[in-house]
């Protein structure tokens, strides 16, 4: 057996699932609003505003319907700095994954903050939306957030 015969064969292999999801009445409304460059939340059963909105109240499981317009600004409640973005990340430079509580909401949502460097990140910092050049009705209509 030649040395070539003992080498282990390797190959790249993509496992893909081509999911198409129906959005439902609440996420559909949220995405429709994003396409129009507006962030919306939903009023929970105890008056709290949930953003991104959920179809059912996280505490009571009550069906929720009352959408609320929110600001384009928010507060970072937690964050993690990405030193080397991976190929599938939406930013090709270091950025922060952050939980952002949109002004007017009582919950935080996960998104990216393009802050330039880690020193510019701080829990409690104010951020504002940077909209995508073209909006399509998808979460990435918010390109990212940036320091306000």
């Amino acid at each position: 057996m030649s040395s070539q015969d003992t080498d282990v064969l390797r190959a790249s292999f993509d496992l893909g699932f081509t999911y198409t999801r129906s959005t439902g009445p609440v996420i559909g409304q949220f995405l429709t609003s994003l396409r129009n460059r507006k962030i919306q939340g939903i009023k929970g059963s105890n008056g709290r505003v949930i953003c991104p909105p959920t179809e059912y109240d996280p505490q009571t499981a009550e069906e929720l319907t009352e959408m609320v317009d929110l600001a384009e600004t928010g507060t970072v409640t937690a964050w993690s700095w990405v030193v080397e973005p991976r190929p599938k990340h939406h930013l090709d430079k270091p950025f922060a994954w952050a939980l952002i509580q949109i002004d007017g909401a009582d919950t935080a949502m996960l998104h990216m903050v393009d802050a330039g460097s880690e020193e510019n990140m701080k829990t409690g910092m104010k951020v504002k939306v940077r909209w995508a050049e073209e909006t399509t009705g998808f979460m990435t209509d918010i390109a990212c957030f940036e320091p306000a």
């Binding site: 282990v8 064969l9 390797r10 190959a11 790249s12 292999f13 993509d14 496992l15 893909g16 699932f17 081509t18 999911y19 198409t20 999801r21 129906s22 959005t23 996420i27 559909g28 409304q29 995405l31 429709t32 396409r35 129009n36 073209e134 909006t135 399509t136 009705g137 998808f138």
Partner: peptide, 23 residues
């Protein structure tokens, strides 16, 4: 984008996992 009220009913959310497979 246009300021349209066409409701977003469908969303593409493919998941693609890139492996380096060793036989």
């Amino acid at each position: 984008s246009e300021d349209t009220n066409d409701f977003v009913e469908i969303m593409e959310s493919p998941i693609v996992l890139g492996y380096n497979f060793s036989a």
